[in-house]
Amino acid sequence: MAPALLAVIWIALAREIGNEVILPGIEQVSRIVLHPTEDLISMGSLAGNVLVSLVRVIMGYTLAALVAIPLGVAMGYYGVIFKFFNGFLNLFRPIPPLAWVPLVMAWFGISSLATASGIETGQIYIYLDNIKFAMLFIIFIGAFYPILTSTIHGVRNVNKTFIDSARVLGANERQIFRKVLLPAAMPSIITGMRIGLGIAWMCLVSAEMLPGSLSGIGYMITHAFTLASTDIVIAGMISIGAVGALMDAGFRHIEHKYFSWRRQAN
């Protein structure tokens, strides 16, 4: 119902305003969204730019999860490790990921996977050069804290009886981590991963809008704006929303399918 209403308002407003820089027609935007592989004002296609952003997000995000989950499990289980890291981590937590951009640009500049791997020509170069370290870092920061916090929370709230039971049944420390703490905290970890992915996606798109960026859906929107192509701006925003919603739906599906035992009362 709501999308239909929005469409009606859009059509009415567009007709009323009659200026496609302020509000282009719905059919104009739909044409772009429905032909995502078409090249747009020499910035590449909509799908191509979304793909570049997606690859960036997946890489930075995976890195964040690989660091945050083990660290979170250790911090949640061992008080000493928690005390050791917590003060330090809390100092950086309030810094918005985008506030890192200037510093990160100073550190990494425009160096990318291409620079790191030494490939300087050909098609592979173009792909690798799209993955800038600065971008990965911003995504990492955005995803890291939600995953870390919910992992710590998840591990801390593991019913002590599960751990005692495993001990009595003969589990060693490693088995307690892998077979008890991790699965018991998994619903909380998955929730953190879902939130982290959402934030990482938002951070990336915003970072792509900043100067120095030459590809990605965020770049596409900003660039289209400077060319007064509001239809591309809106099409780009719709893609951002659609990709974010799809990723979220994917995680929800996992939560529902594999963690239905969470309904148990504890």
């Binding site: 019913n159 009886t161 599960f162 005692d164 039971s165 001990r167 009595v168 049944l169 003969g170 008890v180 699965p183 018991a184 998994m186 963690f259 035992w261 969470r262 148990q264 504890n266």
Partner: peptide, 18 residues
């Protein structure tokens, strides 16, 4: 420390729900 020869059954919520 816990050993396999001595088992313990708890009052409740000891089964691994997953």
């Amino acid at each position: 420390k816990p050993c396999a020869e001595i088992g313990l059954v708890f009052q409740e919520y000891s089964l691994f729900p997953w």
